[in-house]
Amino acid sequence: MTMQDNDPPLMRVSKLSHMYGDRIGCRDVSFDLYPGEVLAVVGESGSGKTTLLNCVSARLQSSAGTISYRMRDGRMQDLNALSEAERRFLMRTDWGFVHQNPADGLRMNVSAGANVGERLMAVGQRHYGRIRETADDWLGRVEIGHDRIDDRPGTFSGGMRQRLQIARNLVTGPRLVFMDEPTGGLDVSVQARLLDLLRGLVDDLGLSAIVVTHDLAVARLLSQRMMVMKDGQVIETGLTDRVLDDPQAPYTQLLVSSILQV
């Protein structure tokens, strides 16, 4: 990877820690995320990866450390110093968040078209025809039939719901997408199709992403770089292929060998 040399980082996380009372959520995590880069955060449940994701996506106020984000105007912004209004604006314009359970990221009581169109309306679009056209285009891009635009997500399969959630997030052209176990809870064949789709979208749009997963195959397919977490700390980090092909930390070796046995 040479992009590190040319571009300044999109996000810079430094000595980030989060405590739940006495219990450690994550401790002393530092990394840079570059434009167009997908970073996978891998670990078992309780490893701190979800806490880390919630902190860096400004959904959770971290106990210590700094998170800086390069705004569209180029200046680095300390996320903890954002006002509530700025934070929420960032979340619905320049960021996306894909939840493991699509119901957490969708409005289940309105149509697919309205789900995709909501962010456009939130940023002030007021032309129904154009909003619908854009929503229709995005449904096509995530391989949902045009005849489903007026159906509610409740009538969709799990894989379709997840693709709808992705379209809903990408419609405003965000630069950074956070994903929490995006293929969790889906059948293996559905997972494969979703991963292909996600990889295509990330490439086409030049998206940066932070993907939390317990599934090394997801990390392999989507990310260029990965971090392995255990007990709230990063125990190994590096280019994804290097970490998976030649793991250094004993715990990573264990993780890798456990999937190879299957």
Binding site: R107, V110, S111, G113, A114, G117, E118, R119, M121, A122, V123, R126, Y128, I131, R132, I149, D150
Partner: peptide, 12 residues
């Protein structure tokens, strides 16, 4: 924005 989601649904 969510108010227009309601109106969008109406039209759809």
């Amino acid at each position: 924005g969510v108010m227009h989601v309601k109106l969008y649904e109406d039209i759809a």
